[in-house]
Amino acid sequence: MKILCVCGLGQGTSLILRINVESVLREIGIQADVENTDVSSASSEHPDYIITNKELAKNLEGHPSKIILVNNYFDKDEIKNALEANLGK
């Protein structure tokens, strides 16, 4: 499974999200290839899941990947709830 963590510029915030997603995935026992990028680059990639916020998700409407929304990239509980709800754990 491939997961893409997306922010506006693909640098700091998406990297923090990636680290937190990887941590939560380990905690719930799911293996995935997790990468981070900017919203423009994400539109041309085809991961299984894209994790981003509501505002950036608007730029990805119609994308074939499943979009998972997270408001706070630093909140591991929110990330865990979003992943469990969408990955079936």
Rank of each mutant, 00 (worst) to 15 (best):
F74V: 13
I28G: 00
E45M: 15
Y73G: 01
I28V: 11
I16H: 06
K66V: 14
E22L: 10
R18P: 00
N36R: 03
N36W: 00
I51N: 02
Q11S: 14
L17E: 06
N59H: 10
N53D: 15
V21D: 07
F74P: 00
R26E: 15
E27W: 06
L25E: 08
S43M: 01
I16K: 06
K80L: 06
H46C: 03
L69R: 04
K58R: 14
L15C: 09
P64Q: 14
Y73T: 01
E45W: 05
V24T: 12
N81V: 11
V6K: 02
E61Y: 07
L83M: 13
N36V: 09
L9A: 15
S43N: 13
L15Y: 10
K76A: 10
E61Q: 15
I68C: 09
A32H: 08
N86S: 12
V70C: 05
A57F: 02
S14V: 07
S14W: 03
V70R: 00
G29R: 10
F74E: 11
E35C: 06
N53C: 14
V39F: 08
I68S: 01
L4T: 04
H63I: 04
T37C: 10
Y49G: 02
C7G: 03
V34C: 04
T52P: 03
S41Y: 07
L9V: 10
D75I: 02
P64N: 11
Y73A: 04
V70N: 02
K76H: 05
S65K: 03
K58M: 12
T13E: 08
H63L: 09
G29Q: 13
S41N: 15
I28E: 12
E78R: 02
L25M: 09
S40C: 13
L25R: 03
K2I: 01
E22S: 05
G88L: 12
I50C: 01
V34N: 05
V24M: 13
L17S: 05
S14Q: 10
I3D: 01
L83Q: 06
Y49R: 06
C5P: 04
A85K: 14
E27M: 09
K58P: 01
T37M: 09
K2V: 03
N20L: 08
S44W: 10
I28M: 10
D77E: 15
A57D: 05
E84H: 00
R26M: 11
G12C: 04
S41A: 07
L69I: 14
D33V: 14
E27L: 06
E61S: 11
P47N: 11
Q11V: 15
S44C: 08
C7Q: 03
Y73E: 02
S23Q: 14
N81L: 07
V34I: 13
I50W: 01
S41E: 15
P64I: 08
L25H: 00
D75P: 06
A85L: 08
S41P: 04
S23K: 13
K76I: 13
I50G: 01
V39Q: 03
E35M: 07
I16A: 13
